[in-house]
């Protein structure tokens, strides 16, 4: 029973801090994007536009909730909720400090991958249930994309697992704090694995340059074409949460989690997560969108073979380098 209470406490804590980060994150992204495009970003609402996210949320929640006439009503309503639920799920096993973890599962890494694989379902359901050609095309693309990119993601995530010899995320972090961060040493396969993880994470959370499921210039808004008001907010939030949780996973698996100079602890984990989160937006406002076929080319012809090679190298490192584990 105490496990339930513990889980509930952490769930409330994680969800509320994620929401706070997302609110600031929206403001930050708009400012950041503005600066990158030589404009100011939001300036009107509140000091330096800080209250802009609040205004955005109020505006979106006021909007009429429109459901297309021939939509699949149950699925249409369920999809945004499931999207938020599944994107939050992985946060349960990520340790933010040696003590702050909701459920330090024995199969932590596998759990993260499994929950990530579930994200396909709400995305597809939204595209299907909207009964809209653009939404359906967006849904199909999203499924093809995340199923493909799950392959290199699973493979590169195996690199820290092999190097540390555990699937429990907290043990992987502890191993890194006792040896080196995996993104630093062993530099091969550690650093390329981290880079591949970052690319696959961008693709899994449908961020530019991998946002072809949305692709506003060709598909209107992809799967969210028919969504309005609160349900649209939920999709928007799910995307942010997915990126944020993905950044936290990357920070824990490759950047040493809570480990850091001076005083290890929660603040290092938060800092690393936010840095990765910022990097996502940096990429987002720098690059253009890939075409569907370029996306598949990149995944199957480049990333998958490299990822397989990295897994081999990691195994060889553990096997042949004395004191590697």
């Amino acid at each position: 029973m105490s496990g339930l209470v513990h889980g509930a406490q952490y769930a409330v804590m994680i969800v509320s801090s994620l929401l706070a980060v997302i609110a600031i994150g929206i403001w930050f992204e708009r400012k950041f994007a503005g600066r990158m495009q030589s404009r100011l970003g939001p300036t009107i609402v509140g000091p330096v536009g800080l209250l802009q996210p609040l205004a955005d949320v109020v505006k979106l929640l006021q909007k009429e909730d429109i459901v297309p006439k021939d939509a699949d009503r149950a699925l249409f309503d369920l999809a945004p909720l499931l999207a938020v639920l599944f994107s939050l799920g992985a946060a349960a096993v990520v340790p933010f400090s040696p003590t702050a973890v909701a459920a330090d599962l024995d199969i932590g890494v596998l759990f993260i991958l499994a929950i990530g694989a579930l994200m396909v379902i709400p995305t597809f359901a939204a595209g299907w249930a909207s009964n809209n050609k653009f939404a359906l095309l967006g849904g199909m693309r999203a499924v093809a994309q995340s199923v493909s990119y799950a392959v290199p993601l699973v493979l590169v995530v195996m690199v820290p697992v092999i190097l540390s010899g555990s699937m429990r995320v907290s043990e992987i972090v502890t191993f890194q704090s006792e040896h080196h961060w995996f993104a630093v040493w062993p530099i091969i396969p550690g650093l390329p694995a981290f880079a591949l993880f970052f690319i696959a994470m961008l693709a899994e959370s449908n961020r530019i340059p991998f946002d072809i499921p949305e692709a506003e210039s060709e598909l209107v808004a992809g799967i969210t074409t028919e969504y309005t008001g609160a349900k649209f907010v939920l999709f928007y939030m799910a995307e942010y949460v997915h990126t944020l949780v993905g950044s936290a996973v990357g920070a824990a698996l490759f950047l040493g989690g809570w480990d850091g100079p001076f005083k290890p602890g929660l603040h290092w984990m938060v800092l690393k997560t936010l840095l990765l989160f910022t990097a996502v937006y940096w990429v987002r406002w720098t690059l253009l969108r890939f075409r569907s076929d370029q996306l598949m080319d990149l995944c199957w012809k480049r990333l998958v073979p490299i990822a397989v090679g990295l897994v081999f190298l990691a195994a060889a490192w553990v096997q042949f380098v004395p004191g590697a584990r």
Binding site: L105, I107, L110, A114, V120, V154
Partner: peptide, 18 residues
């Protein structure tokens, strides 16, 4: 059997049902 549970979700829900 938590490993089996994880693999079940990853492969069957994320893969087969899709």
């Amino acid at each position: 059997a938590s490993f089996l549970a994880g693999v079940q979700v990853l492969l069957y829900v994320g893969g087969v049902s899709v």
